[in-house]
Design a protein around this nucleic acid. Structure first.
Lengths: 217, 217
DNA sequence: GAACGTAATTATGAATGCAAAATGCAGTCA
DNA sequence: TGACTGCATTTTGCATTCATAATTACGTTC
């Protein structure tokens, strides 16, 4: 049993915090990132901050220009077009693997999350819905039991996750998404990986379609 | 010993070079990476080198331990088990997209690479075969015209690419791989994305199976 | 007032410095 | 022999410093 407590290094902590700020739109796409300001904000020197920026750049969340510093990567329509097909494929695999690997406790946990998501939907509480939705997908990802899949899914998903701040999900799409989640839960409970994978893929492609439609308007 | 660098941004160049060294097994799995030595080797200070190591760590090629520095990530059987299913899926998508996007020049280029690969096969020249093989996959990846897919494919593939140093491909598997490549070229020429995707997926899974078998022996 | 050129200021890339942690090595004791 | 301790050395994480590229400020000219 290894319970060694070690303070995470500054650069790792900074990477997480900055990534979170980008995902949560606290740093907006296109925004310049002056090192000095963030150093002051976090109370650290430029060295670990710059290390964090390099990592975020390799994840595609930040763009580095030589001698011009860093800015938050834009979320472009082209990127969405190229990302969603990949993401849909990964989702399908997540579904297939999760259905065959998940245990009863896992199904119970997802069911609980599903119910609280439904509650948020009925209450019209979008932030809570969004969080529960995220948690469900995270739970399925974990249940798939493939950490390579998990890390790459996160990497791909993170970049387009920010698109949610670009448009507002329509009520009809919201209801549709709920229906898809109902389907997912059914297939998960039946441990039908094939079906779950198909629904999750479709779910992701529908999200993409809705996003595109909203962006066009 | 002294390979001075004069390209803009040392850390980017260092990242590329170190990644290459890891892929080419010049830095072996598990090997410790003392910053001082590499600084001397490249003639740079520790700052950009450390930035590069952070990036490689986020790619999973290097493992960082707090206050203990960096070592080259091991290639484990568990990792292969989890990576190949993902990689096979990505390959399938590459095939589907490449077949529909590629132009006549592209097909000609792949055909040329294919022929030189065949020549290497007949000559029993494994290094040359391996390079041509890589080039074909790169060409198809580029032809797919999806840079998100491309970057993530590279990310996933790089980690298991190193497994080729663990075992020697058998002659029977080699011949089988050649046959699969013949199939691929046929489907590519016919621009049959569905079929190409299937073959490429199967090709990858067969590679995995052969690798596993060789490791077991 | 706009366009341009040049000096002052600022921000960035990389090297160096410093404190803390880890490692290696005698020497000690069982 | 083997484990432990104390100390010197090395290595690492981060802060600071330095050089240079980029940006701004400002005057000049048209």
């Amino acid at each position: 049993m290894n319970q060694m407590i070690q303070r995470p290094s500054l650069h790792a902590e900074l990477t997480d915090r900055l990534r979170h700020m980008v995902i949560e739109d606290q740093l907006s796409p296109g925004e310049k990132i002056p090192e000095k300001d963030l150093c002051a904000l976090f109370g650290v020197s430029r060295t670990p901050l710059r290390e964090a920026l390099k990592v975020l750049a390799s994840e595609g969340l930040v763009v580095l220009e030589v001698n011009r510093g860093a800015r938050v990567a834009e979320v472009t329509v082209e990127e969405l077009d190229k990302t969603f097909p990949v993401l849909a494929l990964l989702e399908q695999l997540v579904g297939e693997l999760a259905a065959s690997s998940i245990d009863d406790d896992g199904i119970a946990a997802v069911t609980a999350l599903h119910d609280s998501m439904l509650a948020a939907f009925r209450a019209g509480d979008r932030p809570t819905y969004f969080q529960a939705n995220q948690d469900i997908h995270s739970a399925l990802l974990a249940a798939a039991g493939n950490d390579v899949l998990e890390s790459h899914h996160r990497l791909v998903a993170t970049r387009v996750l920010r698109a949610r701040f670009m448009v507002n999900m329509s009520d009809t799409r919201w209801a549709e998404a709920i229906a898809e989640h109902e389907e997912m839960l059914t297939h998960l409970s039946a441990r039908d990986g094939e079906a779950l994978g198909q629904v999750m893929k479709r779910h992701m492609l529908n999200k993409y379609r809705a996003l595109k439609a909203a962006l066009a308007a």
